[in-house]
Simulated assay, not measured.
Amino acid sequence: MQGIFTISLDFELHWGVFDKRDRQAREACYKNTLRIVPDMLGLFSKYDVHVTWATVGSLFAANQQEWEEFSPAIEPDYAVERYSAYKWVRQHGMSSNYQWAHFAPEEVGMILKYPGQELATHTFSHYYCLEQQREQMAFDADLKAAVKAARKFNAPMNSLVFPRNQFNPEYLKICYDNGIKTVRSNPAGWFWSPVTEGGAGFLRRVFRTADAYIQVGNVRTSYPLSSIKVTPGEPLQLPASRFLRPWSPKSELANKLRLRRSCQEIRIAAMRKEVYHLWWHPENFGDYPEQNLKSLEVLLQQYKKCKEKYGMTSWNMGEYDKYLCGNNGSKGVKQTGKVQA
């Protein structure tokens, strides 16, 4: 089996930070993000890279009226009220002046027109799966709302990324029961273990930042395909390898170190015939879009070299289920519960 290069994107706009940031202050970023979606799709097509676009279901709506039609019957009742997207909307509204912050049906539809691109779910409301809340059926209702919204594009939601990386194993069965076959789990290393919003302390943030530029500990970023376990009634868990930090005007050296580290990791994964799973938010490119697109192309060029030299291939998240769990009849699953490559 050859090495596999996977990209998953957390497509959110303001739904990803409504509890943290002012939307007006992010106007340029969000508008730039929407503008460069076609550019990103063009690059992925140029280098034949398959990508999962884990998209907040609210972005599927064209306006607030349609959003309300898609919204779940049961809302989460978080102990911290500001985490609720629905309470935020009732307080702040979503007038037509803020379409760029909340809705992106044209860009969502565009994703489906490119080969190898998977439209997936980032939950409907950017649901926080580790935060304390009192409605036991709210997560199930949220996923059903995401599936309902996706019918507008005739797109099944087969893969999921947990918002804020709040991976919660207690929710895996609910995911599977709603048609989710693959989920992204967190990178290796204690500083990437799932935590609540207030649980990421200073030291954890320092290690996460440092890890983007230099080796921190003995954590490996790629992994063999055979390490992906198959559990009946649960989706496959695909660990992330690396968060692609955006270009920064503060230090060209840091930018070079960051790209060099990721390029090295892609090459090592290809040589070892392992999986390398890169992720980021499209919004991370919004502040300096041209520079970030150039950085992305450097990484895609590295993948192309590894494809030509080592036979590396590219899968989106949904293709792991398609090719590894027997759904296309070409592969099978060992009785041990591990994927047979």
Rank of each mutant, 00 (worst) to 15 (best):
W190T: 07
Q132N: 05
L172E: 13
G93P: 10
A28T: 14
F103A: 03
P163S: 05
M40C: 12
I268V: 09
H126G: 04
G326L: 06
G217A: 13
W279H: 09
D321P: 00
C325L: 14
T52V: 04
K148E: 09
P224D: 09
V183H: 02
F44I: 06
N97V: 07
W247M: 04
E69V: 08
P72N: 06
D177F: 13
K309E: 08
A212N: 14
G109W: 06
N154M: 14
L300I: 03
G286N: 06
A104R: 02
A138F: 09
V183Q: 00
P239S: 15
E68Q: 14
V183N: 01
W100M: 04
R258N: 12
F167Q: 01
S8W: 13
S227I: 09
L160Y: 09
G179S: 12
A150G: 11
E75T: 13
T55E: 07
R151Q: 15
R220P: 01
W67I: 00
Y98W: 13
M317V: 04
K331S: 15
Q24M: 12
S45E: 14
A73N: 13
T221H: 13
P105Y: 02
H281N: 15
R82G: 01
G198K: 10
V147E: 07
W15T: 09
Y98A: 10
P246W: 07
V298E: 11
A138V: 06
L119T: 02
F167G: 01
T33M: 12
I36V: 10
P249N: 13
V219P: 06
A150F: 13
A138Q: 05
A25L: 12
I111K: 00
N168F: 10
A62K: 12
S262G: 08
P282L: 15
A212D: 06
